[in-house]
Amino acid sequence: MTSNSHSKIYQDAASALQGVKDGMTILVGGFGLCGIPENLILALRDSGAKGLTCVSNNAGVDDFGLGLLLHTRQIKKMVSSYVGENATFEKLYLSGELELEFCPQGTLAERVRAGGAGIPAFYTPTGVGTLVAEGKDVREFDGRPYVMERGITGEFALVRAWKADTFGNLIYRKTARNFNPMMATAGKITVAEVEEIVPVGELDPDEIHTPGVYVQRIIKAPKLEKRIEQRTTRLK
């Protein structure tokens, strides 16, 4: 903790995760390994919290990202759209050790956006007539069927941004934005891991992606590996 009790800046990832308990729902930003809060995920593993429900588009890879918490069996349930890059995941799921709620990517993004915006449910055309719609309300609007999906919120949201100011205004970089802005709105406590923290006033208000009201805690990433899953290049 910092000496200034009003400050949102925390000294390290472990202190920024104070209050994480067994059985909580944790929202985690990122797409694949791009834009994941690497240091917060490591700290979540080291916290030893168990029985977690993690809402994240993907589950990392075997030895990085949320894959680390699958190894340690800290995750009870995942809500994701795609887990194909993680062999541990497939094994745990097929053997019944891990609960999984598959959610179409756009529906997942919208469920978290809705959760953070105070909307408990909405109707979407995505997934009508598929396994995803089973047991859910389906209604016709203007002659087309839509399925009802619920908003999602969590006790904690862990996100990664490029720059933060001390109020918690966030700017993301390129496609590392992905799910981070929605996750940031839907956590009771949102923790942002950032590459750079600047004083208030230094970020142009027109350029801010996530207003600071959504962010309760900030850490500067001590280091970022930014691992690349598919390093594809051209010669010239």
Binding site: R177, F179, I228
Partner: peptide, 29 residues
């Protein structure tokens, strides 16, 4: 190569002139 710039197949890519970046919610909207 920029780790923060990938496509949906998780491959490193580039952005053309006139490109825009946005959140997953905007993307699926």
């Amino acid at each position: 190569v920029d780790a923060d710039l990938i496509n949906a197949g998780k491959q490193t890519v580039t952005a053309v002139k006139g490109a825009s970046f946005f959140s997953s919610a905007d993307s699926f909207a």
